[in-house]
């Protein structure tokens, strides 16, 4: 056991030196991009593994973006699948009916982006009630919003109503998913560690104190909701073009619950946690697939046990060093040293 811990800590130190290297992120992104292109073009990975990786990427986008609201801002949003639905439908309508069929491959990112922007506009609307209501009541507002979106889509016959919408080409490829995943993680990580991010955190800790400290809480809430729903819309667009078929029931409360579970499994207010949560949840569900319906019995049971023995999730309010900016690391180091000096002096 002792040997195991020393090996673990050694490996951890090596990992930290590796991730702290100047070229780690560029090399990682380049390698990932090249690998995903190779996997898609040269068929290094078979279609099934590729599809799972695509779902993992989409789930990472969803989880990281929901973590901005539920984890960092401390609200409880239960309507994330609604934003996803808006992005999915806008992007699908664009690629199927609006864009000329010849250039659809080329215009795919535009469609995804438009879906994201559409979802962001709706996110702006949802942010407005959040000025006055908090906690459970805001949860109801987002819940109601998710159901309104679903019920609207079921009533619009032009997009197929409850039958769903199909005809999309399989445009979501591994490189695209990798690109959008990295982009969403990058944007949200930078937002969280910016001045704006401090505002978000202060709203979670104490909203009144935050506004006394001249944090513009309304503006911060609007930006957080808009960014979060933007990426949910992007994930929706990618999801629609990976599955090539969408219907309103896919984006109901169960989907939102799935995303919530991934967020809290990984741990709130942690980007590394969100990524881990999404990966573990998606892959575990695939591994357990031979169990049939019993896997859906086992998964919630594991979740409950995890919550009882580790209520904050896997990472819970902690962050992997690779996502923390250098200046924060130095700051923490100085603070710890000062604290140690103070305790030494008093002793």
């Amino acid at each position: 056991m002792d040997k195991f811990t020393t090996t673990y800590s050694q490996l951890l130190t090596r990992w930290h030196t590796l991730t702290a290297h100047r070229f780690f992120w560029p090399v990682f992104i380049l390698a990932g991009l090249l690998f995903s292109i190779a996997a898609a073009r040269l068929e290094i990975l078979d279609q099934y593994v590729q599809l799972i990786l695509i779902y993992v990427g989409i789930n990472i986008i969803l989880t990281v973006s929901l973590n901005l609201i539920n984890g960092y801002m401390g609200e409880f949003s239960v309507g994330h699948a609604g934003f996803m639905a808006i992005g999915a439908y806008i992007a699908s309508i664009l690629t199927v009916s609006v864009f000329p069929q010849a250039s659809v491959n080329f215009l795919f990112p535009v469609a995804i982006l438009t879906g994201g922007i559409g979802a962001a506009l709706i996110g702006f609307l949802v942010a407005i009630p959040s000025f006055k209501t908090r906690g459970d009541y805001l949860a109801i507002v987002t819940l109601a919003f998710g159901m309104i979106v679903k019920s609207c889509l079921e009533n619009i016959d032009a997009v197929g109503g409850p039958r769903g919408f199909l005809g999309m080409d399989k445009l979501t490829t591994l490189p695209w998913v990798f690109f959008w995943t990295v982009l969403s993680v990058w944007v949200i990580r930078n937002l969280v560690y910016s001045k704006f991010g401090r505002g978000v955190l202060s709203i979670r800790e104490d909203e009144i104190a935050a506004s006394l400290m001249s944090v513009n809480t309304r503006q911060v809430k609007i930006i957080a909701f808009v960014v979060s729903s933007f990426f949910a819309g992007i994930a929706g667009g990618l999801f629609a073009h990976a599955l090539q078929f969408i219907n309103p029931r896919m984006f109901d409360i169960l989907k939102s619950t799935d995303i919530l579970i991934m967020v809290y499994l990984g741990g709130i207010a942690s980007i590394a946690g969100s990524i881990l949560g999404a990966i573990i949840y998606t892959i575990l569900l695939e591994i357990l697939r031979p169990m049939g319906v019993w896997r859906m019995v086992l998964m919630p049971l594991m979740l409950v046990l995890l919550m009882i023995y580790r209520p904050r999730g896997i990472m819970g309010l902690r962050e992997a060093k690779m996502f923390v900016p250098l200046r924060d690391l130095i700051l923490v180091k100085i603070l710890r040293q000062k604290k140690k000096e103070a305790t030494d002096a008093s002793a």
């Binding site: 409880f76 619950t257 579970i261 809290y264 019995v297 919630p300 409950v304 919550m307 209520p311 904050r312």
Partner: peptide
Amino acid sequence: PRVSAIITALGVGLF
């Protein structure tokens, strides 16, 4: 934390 209780409740429901 309150949220873990809520997530547990969601888990129990799914179960």
